[in-house]
Design a protein around this nucleic acid. Structure first.
Length: 564
RNA sequence: CGGGGUGUAGCUCAGCCUGGCUAGAGCGCUUGCUUUGGGAGCAAGAAGUCGUAGGUUCGAAUCCUAUCACCCCGACCA
């Protein structure tokens, strides 16, 4: 590719709208331009990187026997009503002129195809995938391509006749994903994750660690524990039982609202304070008991409740139902509430909690004796430094960017959308599904986050839009131009993807800066100094190392470096 | 959706508080000459109805109102 004829609009200055490095560099290196919030146009160089990433994904998917589909982005709205996902908040973008929506993902369409196409256990298993644009009603797009309103995804869907089959399909994806992200030159890790609104029985996320990530993860390097904070566990002890068996007493606690005030007022450890949190679950009142300073983890709460909608109860409503304000609520004598508690409180006694009467607390509460607790669940958010499960290793908390997510969906969609098959015994059963996503643009953005320096992008070999960047130092030197042209021709003929900076009237410095910014792995610098000795210079972008080689050996040397 | 910020030339920004000549700078762009190993120099030039609409005023980029867009923090996040 001759730069003199190419569209590679590099920018010297940092575009003011971009705040994270990958976003800034993707704009500065001329990979893409923003059309409107959360929507980007990929320019030729950026699109090449996207295609490289897609191709790696495609190869590894094909290697596990997956078959590529091309699915409609326009979906009938009714299909989403049927699956129950039409009204998930901030999810679907719709078309004004018709009852059509833009597909945010493709479980529904896949299920529609499978419902007529899959009839017998003999048709299973299947792995189907697509690499296409998806659309989402994102309330706040941000961080460049990391969170957009349209985004390129590889999504695959597995159809199995048995749960064992699903495990196999899932594990195949787990391994394929590791290969994909390794080939993409990413330093990634896998975490246990919440299935969230997707439903299902298990899921894992592939992440890179980054200050700019939106996810928070708990990590323990040595023991290998890694989990999204939404589900992360730690070995904190239960608070257990005290030997005493005192009766409940009411204590006047004027103006005591917070756990901290209560600790000071009663002069007790926070561990004996049972904090009451009041929510509505699918509209029904719910009281949650937590150990004093522990934070409720809403993701864990939703899982514990088996899904559904939760919302904190607002103050006036709470007062109407209990006669007391938040801060004075407790489990004793509370009517019309389901009561659940965090595991740390299991069978605990000697607890302090609100009396459901403003300015009063109860002491000596025994959950076993005095309260009908409808289940103990792990509901707390872990804190850094707590021991990883089954170890003494302290957990570290870090931010991460999610690259991929794999789900065991089970039968949620096959039941809603009638994807059934006849098994060996002639019984009609729902197909067992899995769903597995990878954000293609995120691969590229994360690759840049991890492969850059002050001068620009430093592409790894697998995603680099081109392999080699040939730079003639002085376009006024006939010899330089002649040799550089030959160099370009030789590289191209050898099958290497090559950029040739044949632009006239640009200083050498300008070309070097541009080459470093767009970041191809190897620069071949053709200058009068080297040519005197029949040599050109190969510069490794990543290390800055320079090697002088004879003109004849330049191509084979770069080929050798690319093999390394 | 709550809070904050910004909209002035292709890009980065100044000017706005305290209204007043023909609206500025750097980069980029065009032409010519020079230059060519780390974002060159000189000269000449093109380019903006100051986001949009309304208002106040003799006069608005500047003050007021509304509106749109974009960015950041939060909420949300398949």
């Amino acid at each position: 590719m001759r730069l003199s004829k190419a569209f590679v609009p590099t920018l010297k200055e940092i575009p003011s709208d971009a705040t994270i490095p990958s976003h800034q560099l993707m704009l500065r290196a001329g990979l893409m331009r923003q059309l409107t919030a959360g929507v980007y146009a990929f320019l030729p160089l950026g699109y090449r990187a996207i295609r490289k990433a897609s191709q790696i994904v495609r190869e590894e998917m094909n290697a596990i026997g997956a078959q590529e589909f091309h699915l409609p982005a326009l979906n009938p709205e009714a299909l989403w009503v049927q699956s129950g996902r039409r009204n998930i908040p901030n999810f679907i973008l719709s078309i004004k002129e018709r009852d059509l929506v833009l597909a945010p993902t493709h479980e529904e369409v896949i299920s529609w195809i499978a419902s007529s196409g899959i009839q017998s256990y003999k048709d299973l298993p299947q792995i189907w995938y697509q690499i296409q644009m998806k659309f989402r009603n994102e309330p706040r797009p941000r961080s460049g391509v990391l969170r957009g309103r349209e985004f390129l995804m590889k999504d695959s869907y597995t159809l199995d006749a048995s749960w064992e089959g699903l495990d196999k399909s899932y594990d195949a994806h787990l391994e394929a994903y590791k290969k994909i992200f390794t080939r993409c030159g990413l330093n990634f890790f896998v975490v246990g994750a919440s299935s969230g609104a997707m439903g299902g029985t298990g899921s894992q996320e592939f992440m890179i660690e980054s200050l700019h990530g939106e996810d928070t993860v708990a990590l323990a390097g040595k023991s290998g524990y890694a989990a999204n904070l939404e589900i992360a566990k730690s070995d904190v002890p239960k608070i257990g039982r005290l030997p005493s068996d005192n009766k409940i007493e009411e204590i006047h606690t004027p103006n005591v609202r917070t756990i901290k005030q209560l600790m000071e007022f009663l002069n007790v450890d926070h561990m004996r304070l049972a904090k009451s949190l009041v929510y509505r679950h699918n509209g029904k009142p719910l009281l949650i008991l937590m150990v004093g300073n522990d934070q409720l983890n809403e993701s864990k709460l939703v899982s514990a409740l088996g899904g559904g909608a939760i919302e904190p109860m607002d103050a006036t409503e709470l007062n109407k139902l209990t006669g007391a304000d938040a801060g004075s609520i407790g489990p004793i004598g509370l009517e019309g509430f389901r009561i659940i508690a965090d595991r740390r409180l299991e069978e605990a006694n000697g607890l302090v909690s609100g009396a459901n009467k403003n300015d009063y607390h109860l002491i000596n509460i025994d959950l076993k004796r005095d309260v009908e607790v409808d289940g103990y669940f792990d509901l707390r958010t872990i804190e850094p430094g707590e021991p990883a499960p089954g170890t003494t290793e302290p957990l570290k908390i870090a931010n991460g960017i999610e690259l991929g997510h794999i789900f065991k969906l089970g039968t949620k969609y096959s039941e809603a959308l009638n994807v059934k098959f006849l098994d060996e015994t002639g019984e009609l059963k729902p197909v067992i599904m899995g769903s597995y996503g990878i954000g293609i643009e995120r691969i590229v953005a994360c690759h840049i986050e991890q492969n850059r320096d002050d001068n620009g992008i430093s592409w790894g070999k697998s995603l680099a839009p081109y392999h080699v960047h040939v730079i003639p130092v002085n376009m006024n030197s006939k010899e330089t131009v002649l040799q550089a042209n030959q160099m370009y021709r030789r590289f191209t003929e050898a099958g290497l993807e090559t950029i040739f900076d044949d632009r006239e009237n640009l200083s050498a410095g300008f070309k070097f800066k541009d080459a470093d910014l767009i970041g191809m792995p190897y620069q071949v610098i053709v200058g009068e100094k080297g040519l005197k000795n029949g040599q050109v210079e190969i510069k490794k972008r990543r290390t800055g190392e320079r090697i002088m080689v004879s003109i004849e050996l330049a191509v084979s040397e770069v080929q050798r470096l690319l093999q390394e």
